[in-house]
């Protein structure tokens, strides 16, 4: 367990101690807001997901037994909250993904070091929702294609295709950015 989230703080949080909850919120909120932004793509939805995620997390605190990283456990809750939101709003079924993908080439950027976090984050947020979700789940969270397929109600082939196109889309954006600086 990360020392930041010490046992006493988590136990107090389980007891409903408001100060402990606020302390956990202060520690987690910036990181989890980043997670929500990556999945939702817009700030308003991400704020809503951040709220829902914290309410859900505090209500489930008793189920955290200290077996793994607290932050990892919390991150799963926020990811699940975002996925539920995306499913609920049928964001994943938008049809423009395929059209977007057809325009792509497959150049691999070599100058990624020149890109900062904020620029990269902006690019991920601009990804079409289907690409963005699969890319986040596979490349950042480490889900397998089977898990993604089960979670999103799509086939594994679709998951692979979406991921491939997401990579290509991002690589092109990065290339455009770095080429523009030269």
């Amino acid at each position: 367990m990360n020392e930041t989230y010490n046992h006493k703080l988590i136990e107090s949080c389980k007891d409903g101690d408001r100060k402990a909850q606020k302390a956990i919120y202060d520690l987690l909120a910036p990181k989890m807001f980043s997670v929500c932004l990556r999945y939702c793509g817009d700030r308003q939805s991400a704020e809503d997901m951040l709220q829902d995620g914290f309410v859900s997390m505090f209500s489930k605190m008793d189920s955290y037994k200290g077996a793994g990283s607290f932050e990892g456990w919390a991150r799963k809750i926020f990811v699940n909250t975002c996925l539920m939101y995306l499913r609920k709003n049928d964001v994943l079924k938008q049809s423009d993904d395929i059209e977007e993908a057809r325009k792509l080439t497959s150049d691999v950027p070599t100058q990624m070091e020149d890109i900062g976090y904020k620029e990269l984050m902006k690019m991920v947020m601009e990804l079409p929702p289907g690409f963005r979700t699969v890319f986040n789940m596979y490349a950042i969270e480490g889900y397998s294609h089977k898990e993604i397929a089960d979670e999103l109600g799509i086939t594994e082939t679709t998951s692979r295709t979406q991921l491939s196109r997401a990579r290509t889309w991002l690589q092109n954006k990065i290339k455009e950015k770095t080429d523009g600086r030269k």
Partner: peptide, 16 residues
């Protein structure tokens, strides 16, 4: 590419 993206985005923080 995935690893580079992950290393840059995984621990990212945003102003709340």
């Amino acid at each position: 590419f995935d690893l580079k993206m992950r290393s840059m985005l995984e621990s990212g923080q945003e102003e709340v």
